[in-house]
Design a binder for these strands. Structure first.
Lengths: 355, 355
DNA sequence: AATAGTTAGTAAAACGTTTTACTAACTATT
DNA sequence: AATAGTTAGTAAAACGTTTTACTAACTATT
């Protein structure tokens, strides 16, 4: 019957079929028909759309309106459970609002992040949720100055006026160290990353302040991002332990660092917490199932996802209006397990004495 | 100078600026200028494009050509490390070929998968890589009959003629069970999912055949997908162990099942492998770091990602030509660790005797 | 009866590309 | 010198929407 039976139906087809103009069809589709088009016609059009299962062509809509209903979520590494679990919850929330999330990984590389942004600009995404790699503020600034909607996640630039959703890393770390001090640990080490990123920087600052408050020394090791999962990283950590035999507890600044670290501790046959207490940022099944279970400073995944999506949707809704920046700082949640309990140590010691 | 200085530059702007037609510009952009447009003009246009940083508007291209350079990757759960690590490698490979991957999670729900496919049809993605949920063959069939490019991943429909990249689950499981038999385990249990999905079905079939070959009994438990991470799942597994006290080894059919299972084993204070040997499908940091480290039947992540992308790109390239189905079956890789070694058991026993 | 206002629509332009069918001007061939 | 072929381009239509500016036919008001 139809000329091109195999391709999708368009507004034009509907208009022809119902003997109406495409304008009328468009008005009905976009709920702009009230007080303009008679109720009967509206009903007729809606019924026909329902019947044939018409769906607008989104590239045509995008071409015309400039909107894509797409939000990009650019993280360091989508296979890191912290990022992928936030991603999954965001996907869920955004879907209900008619938005799609596109995920991608920067590998913490500036050049890759620039390439990705350039590609997404071509695709006219509506908003950018970005976990910026090292040395990226200029690019963020550029994006913002081009009137794009930008939300920073996990790390931000304190001095400037951006939208962000982050953890209170400084306080979370202080709380963690204070807890260790309270448990009676005397030489608390910090294993972090060589980095200017706010997240990592603030965690280290929190550590330093808490340690100083307790009249303890700064015992810290900082690896390069690319060494964390390599032999070099393991070796550096191993040496660090050898050179500082007095260390009786460690805070790992990221979950990847903790995994590398735990492997080394295991190889060295160091018993947790008897020989060394352990705490890490970010919760994972791994830490819960570890023997002994590892105490963690957990980030509120669901809340982070919710704030990111709500914030971004709000920015989208009020685009082109003057609006306040969205700046949200959430608190971390210390989950205490056996790896950091001094009571465990005493238990073991008393057993050893009895034996 | 320009009328609309803030918006992006278009072909029209370039044509006007260089006193050429938009056709000419388009030919140069799309490398169709050879033998048609003089070398000087080509050079001039290319230089200008470079200078102003022109990038084509992709929704206009999509509207005109029907292509989006986008591949959707629909998995069960993007926060499952198995899927997210495949996703990450695919993203990398696809990027180099000018394609973008869009990830999304079905949660193994048919209705959700249908919604997602409908949305992606509106967005005219070029290809679908799908980990289908339960009872989804009709939908896949429909998609294929609409002349869409569809590649199945992880699970497939054996009787029909689809494109797929999967593990040889049957052989992988047989190999695993044969290994356990060789180690001297006598009552080997299988913990799987109640499911018609080929992956899970074949794993169970492999188990049954291997166990029968060894003249052992089928000792299996099958949970519902939604119970795996819940208390109900743990309780069912706990009861299963209580009701079958003779079990001396377990194969978990997925990594999530193993995590649930390991938590229960820990709570019950069962020692691995002394009280019970453990093997699971899929490798994760968790299994390597576990005490004792858990033996796994690992899937070849990088190879899976490579085959998926190469296969899909090939399908895209030869679209509308007659072409063979892409049907790839990869072998699993048994990584033996202490959780399944009978030598470990003997070591412990001899120690116990000496004590 | 003339005028103003309302109702129920429509025509046409535009978003930015790609591609088909054309052409003017030159060059080579008889 | 006429013709055929080639070179180097261009005009215009089309993809499927949204939206502005218009209008014909009523209805209400003076």
């Amino acid at each position: 019957m139809k000329k091109k039976d195999q391709s999708r139906i368009s507004i034009k087809d509907i208009a022809k079929e119902l003997n109406l103009s495409i304008t009328t069809i468009s008005f009905v589709i976009n709920n702009k028909a009230k007080n303009r088009i008679s109720d009967e016609v509206i009903a007729k059009v809606e019924a026909y759309i329902e019947k044939v299962g018409y769906k607008p062509n989104s590239s045509a809509q995008t071409l015309r309106t400039g909107k894509t209903n797409t939000i990009v979520f650019m993280v360091e590494d989508i296979s890191d459970p912290f990022f992928s679990s936030v991603a999954k919850e965001m996907e869920e929330l955004a879907f209900d609002s008619g938005y799609r999330i596109i995920f991608c990984s920067t590998e913490n590389k500036k050049s890759r992040a620039i390439e990705l942004i350039s590609m997404f600009k071509d695709r006219q995404v509506d908003a950018y949720i970005i976990t910026p790699p090292e040395d990226f503020e200029d690019e963020i600034q550029k994006l913002v100055s081009e009137n794009q909607i930008v939300m920073l996640f996990d790390r931000f630039y304190k001095q400037a006026d951006y939208n962000y959703v982050v953890l209170n890393n400084f306080e979370a770390t202080k709380k963690t160290i204070n807890y260790l001090v309270g448990e009676g640990f005397k030489n608390i080490a910090f294993v972090g990353l060589e980095s200017g990123l706010s997240t990592l920087f603030e965690r280290f600052e929190g550590y330093k302040e808490a340690v100083a408050d307790a009249n303890m020394n700064d015992l810290s090791l900082h690896l390069n991002f690319e060494d964390v999962r390599s032999k070099k990283g393991s070796d550096l950590f191993d040496n660090f332990l050898n050179n500082n035999p007095n260390i009786d507890a460690i805070l790992f600044s990221t979950n990847s660092l903790a995994i590398t670290g735990l492997k080394v501790l295991k190889k060295k046959n160091l018993e947790i917490p008897l020989d060394i207490g352990v705490i890490t940022f970010d919760d994972r099944d791994l830490f819960e199932l570890h023997s002994p279970p590892i105490t963690v400073m957990a980030q509120p995944i669901s809340l982070l996802a919710k704030e990111l999506i709500n914030g971004t949707l709000k920015l989208l809704k009020n685009k082109n209006k003057v609006q306040n920046k969205i700046q949200i700082v959430l608190e971390g949640n210390l989950v205490i397990r056996k790896s950091s309990k001094h009571t465990e140590i005493e238990l073991k010691r008393s057993k050893a004495t009895r034996a």
